[in-house]
Structures are given as C-alpha cells and as structure tokens.
Design a protein around this nucleic acid. Sequence first.
DNA 1: TTGTATGCGTTATCAC
DNA 2: GTGATAACGCATACAA
Lengths: 367, 367
Amino acid sequence: MDEIRKRSRPGRTPSAPGRTSRPRQAEVARAAGVSQATVSLVLGGKKQGAAISEETRRKVLEAAGALGYVPDPAARRLAAARNDLLGVFSFTATFPTDVQHSYYPFLVGVEQEAAARGYDLVLFTGSSSGGAGAAGPDALSRVRLADGCLFLGRHAPAEELGRLVADGFPAVHIGRRDELDGLAWVGADYVSAAACVVAHLAHLGHRRIVLVREDDEAPASTDRERGFLAGLAEAGLDAGSSAVFRTADPAGDLTAARLRDWVDAGVTAFVAEETDTGGAWRALCGAAREAGFEAPRDVSLALLGSPPPDLSHERVPTGFDIPRPELGAAAVRLLAALVAGEEAGEPLVACTFRTGETSGPPPAAPA
Amino acid sequence: MDEIRKRSRPGRTPSAPGRTSRPRQAEVARAAGVSQATVSLVLGGKKQGAAISEETRRKVLEAAGALGYVPDPAARRLAAARNDLLGVFSFTATFPTDVQHSYYPFLVGVEQEAAARGYDLVLFTGSSSGGAGAAGPDALSRVRLADGCLFLGRHAPAEELGRLVADGFPAVHIGRRDELDGLAWVGADYVSAAACVVAHLAHLGHRRIVLVREDDEAPASTDRERGFLAGLAEAGLDAGSSAVFRTADPAGDLTAARLRDWVDAGVTAFVAEETDTGGAWRALCGAAREAGFEAPRDVSLALLGSPPPDLSHERVPTGFDIPRPELGAAAVRLLAALVAGEEAGEPLVACTFRTGETSGPPPAAPA
DNA sequence: TTGTATGCGTTATCAC
DNA sequence: GTGATAACGCATACAA
C-alpha cells in the first residue's frame, strides 16, 4: 500500500511549486517582513507580552491569518512542544453491530471535556480489524503523536501500554486497570453504587438479600460484591443471613426451584450484577417469572448496572447506571492534568441510582 | 561551527513532558554497528529486500528488538511530509441530549473507512459549544492541520469553507451542498429513494397519493418531492390526481377532517417526509388515528426517512433508511481521493428501502 | 550494499 | 526587540 504513494519532493525542493501546501512560519515571516523565529514567538503566545512590539505582533498575526497558517502538529510535537491534541485509542469493537460494545457513549463526554479545555481529539483507528496499525508491536506507538492518550477496552496490550507509561507518556485508561502499574485510570464507583442499591432495599424493609454474580474475578464483579457486603453492613444487616451466589452458568444454575428455596428461607430481594451479556439479570428475571413471582409484588429485584437493550421494553429495573459520558469527561480531566505535569485526582466516578420499578416493600414488610 | 556543538540541546525545555529518552535509530545503529540510514532502510521495511544484506538486516533487527525501539510517529510524519490525518468537523450538536442530532452514526462509517485506508481521525471540537475554536472567524482554519477534512451539518460558514476550498484544501461535506461552488460533497439519494417508495405503493395498487412536506426549500425536502413526482410518473400515475401538501405547521394543518376529505376523494396512501423533529410523520399518524383510519387496513402510510426514536415502539413505517455509516464511508473515500489528487466519484449513496408495516393494498384494491 | 548529507517545520537559546 | 541557529528523529538522494 505504501509503495504506491508518489513521493515527489524527495529531499524537498526549497519551495515546492506544484502543490498548494500548507503555509509555514517562514512564509508568514516573509509576508510580515520579519524572521521566522519572530513568527514563532508571536504565535507561540508566550507570556513574554512585552518582549515583542505591538506593531510586529499585529503584522505577524495579520499575515498568519491571511495565509491561513496553522502549525504542523508533527513538527510541533517533534520540537517537544505541545499539540493540543489528545488521542483516543479504543480496543473495544469500534464498529458496532452491537451498539453495546461501542465506545461512543464515552466519547460524548470525552469530546465535551476536551472541547472545554481547548483540545482536539485524535481517533486512532488501529484498534479494529484491518486498521492502520492494527498489527505489529508498535501499533500503539502512533499515539505518541498526541500530547497524551486515552485507552478504552480490556484488550490493550499490557506490554506496549507499559512502555508508553514507562516513557512518561501521559496515558489514561477508562475502566479500572490496577494490574498495570503506573497506568492512570478512571472507573465507575461500583462499590458505592452497589451499596446504595442495598441501602435502598434495606430501607424498603428487606432483611435477607441474595446477590447473583458470575464466577470470575473481574474488578467490576468484585467491586460490586464488596459494595453489596458494605451495604449490608451499613444497614445493620447480618451478612450471614444474606448470601452471595456465584455461578458460571446463570441460565442453568438459577432455577425457579432454587429461587423458591431462598424465598422460603426468608429472602425477599435479589440483586444481579450487570455482565457483558446481561446473563445474570436475564436468568434472575426468568427464574422469578417461572417461579410465579412478580416483582415488586412478591420479590424485589435489582440490577447492579444497566439492563441489556433487548430488555428495554421490560419494566425498568431498580439499580444504577454507569455514567459513561461522565467517565469520559473525568478521563480527559485526568489526562489533561498528566499532560500538564500535575498530579492525578479522584479516579472514581459516581454511578447514578435508578429507582426503577422492580423493587418495593417485601410482601410481609414489618411496618 | 564545531565549537557550538557543546551547547546542550538548545531547542528543548529542561523537562520535556512525555519523553524520557527512548532509543532512536541512531542508537540502534550504534548497537548494530551500522549507520542510522541503514537502520532506517531496514526498519522502513520497503520492499527493497535485495538492497540490504541479510546479515546487516539481522543485526539491525536484533539490536532494535533488544533496545525496544519504536519509531517516533511525529518524526516519521514530519519527514514523510504527510500526517495521515483526516479531520472531522461537525456543526451539528455534538453532545446529544437528543441522539438524533449526533453525528456518531456517520462516524461509524468514517472510522471504518479511514482505518481501512490507514488514516487516523482528528475530531475538531471547535464545532460545539465552548470548543477550542468555536469563536473567531478562523475557527475553521485549524482543520488545515489534517491532510483533508470532512464537514457535517448545515451550519458550516460558507465563507470560511469557501476559503479552504479555494486554497485547494481537500474538503468534503456530508450532505448535499450545491450552493458552495467547488465544495465536494456526498449525499443520500433521496430522489431515487422517494421514487422507490412511490413505486412500492403504486405496485400495491394505490393510484392517488398525497405527499406531506414542510414548507421550506431544503435540498432534502425538494429532492424528496422530486422523487415523489418521478415515482408517480414512472408508475404511470397522473400527478394531477395526487397531491403535494406543504405546511409549516403539520400538527395544526394536518387534521383528521382534511385526511377524510382526501380519502373521500380517492386518496389511499399518504407519504410524509422525514424532518428534524419528525413533525410531519407524527402529525400524519396522529391525524390518521384521529380519523379512525388504521394502517395499512384503511390507508397506507409511508415515511421518506427514518422514524423518530420516540416512535420506535410503533409499527415500523414503510419508507427508507439513510445509510449514515455508508455516507460516512463514501465521504472518506471521496476525501482520500481528493487528498491523493484524484478526481471525485459518484457523490450519491443509495438509501435502503424499508418494507415496513404501514402499507398494503388499498381497501378496495383492484386485483 | 552501506554511509554521508540534508531537509521536514517548530521551538528555544543566544548573540546582536 | 530581533535574527541566526541548533536540535527533535526519521527518510532518502547520492556518493563511496
């Protein structure tokens, strides 16, 4: 693909006559009757306000405007200056047949915050199949064109990311990423959010609650469980009388019979974690329905996250939403801080509680 | 000039952010015992396979690997005189409270096609509120940073755009943009799509059809009307017995009584154009319901476009969809051609017909 | 086949 | 205050 590209101007003729190429500082300088360095000083907008005569400054700005000058990002970057460019590199499926796996919800906030701070965004397309730099061990290296970069998705190659970080390149991962030492990240505060849901249920009068979670050790899962337990504790509920149910196969393990057993044992509320597939929640709802329970009449149901889109016509579940735009914005704030050489702030973003329609007082609620 | 060499890196701030010394080609060269140029040749991976001895190549690759060399994209782009960056400048509301007005559907295709061609994307945030370059008459000039730029939305300032085009800067507008001479654009083929819908209705047996459109002269509107009329003509229907109903206030003007009048006059099908608000379609459906007509039993309804999201739970309307990702991809193809100095191709992208559930044979369909 | 010499556009230092 | 000038890291004619 590269060999096709016609490279005229190999060593570059002094003034390329053929093309309408971008004006450079030198041309602005000529037009303004000053030196190129002066142009750089003026346009660099340094706080050396007094160092340059108003007259010169005006001429330069005028010439630059007339020629439509805009600095070359590569040159700027090479000269160790800043670009005002923030990168976004996504390892999630970028082209959503399934909108679920798209990173656009984050991008909304990223874009907004970047705009507010005067940054433009570079979307590195290498993430997906057939992309510019999909393959190769230096796929990630292109992000160095920007002043810093955001990373989304779990599949970011740790080694390369580590190199970037080790080199001091400002990088922020959206989503918790503890295992990679030194990599900054922002994430949703699942612990607090889960605790909040439990508090809501406890407030309604529930005393025995079961959490259904998948059988893995993903941070998103363990955080929710921690929040669940914390919520129980804060509500003064005995963790022993509630339970955490782990299953690798929710659809198979979460039977109507098992649900009935729990209810017979005094459980009045069930909480499922959000998973990629929504399997836990789906299984929970299915089992409840099969067991003849209706929420919130017979049991209360809650979902630690957002429902899968194919269930959007169902009753909206009690639970919380991950504020993806907020996360994106927080990531940009953090990245901007890193670029500016400042320290990181709070990496956790609060989820928003969703009252929903699947929870209510337990059937025989005490008062 | 040798005595000056001592000065340590004049053009660099003491603490250049984001850069601890990482290996450069020169160091690889030293480690491999060759020259920097040779390293460049080997790692450049040009198909000059025979130009370099296997021995040297091996040594270089080995050294590069050992040092963990990765090329600096800024330097690479500077030297290559191209940056493989395509801009995206949107004048639509970027931060969608209303997802309708977001440009992300286009971005899907843009991103895909850009990736396939080895381009990265620059999202210029100046378009929206408070953005980097929102204000000022030179807001658009930042796009010159890229090799070319895509523009979305109707509100692109014609003058500035004209200047870019006049300067020979590769620019492509997504959506028809005839009034700006010389500006390349891609757009949806509303004419064919509307004609196709009419053909569908005619095929079902409808002979008198009413088009409801808003009272403006937007290309999207006039194109649909042209297609509507063309469809009538192709079906051998007399345009005189059908009608085009223009209204600036669909909700107010499109009454149940008026609908009944039309039906009494033999009209069996109604076609509404898609508008920003979906007003025409919504009014049409409302009036039909109020008049006691059910589609497709009593009348056939069609929508020249996609239904507003708040009507997504309703019956799927007969009509067509604007292939926004396709449009985005086509725009990138066109832009890439312009960047390469080639000529433009076909600017129109076909819409996809949607059978839907709101049309059927007319009540007293002949055969 | 490999090395030498330049230039890409910017920034920042240092004389003038 | 302003103008030379040296890098930044890489790619490529051209000489050896």
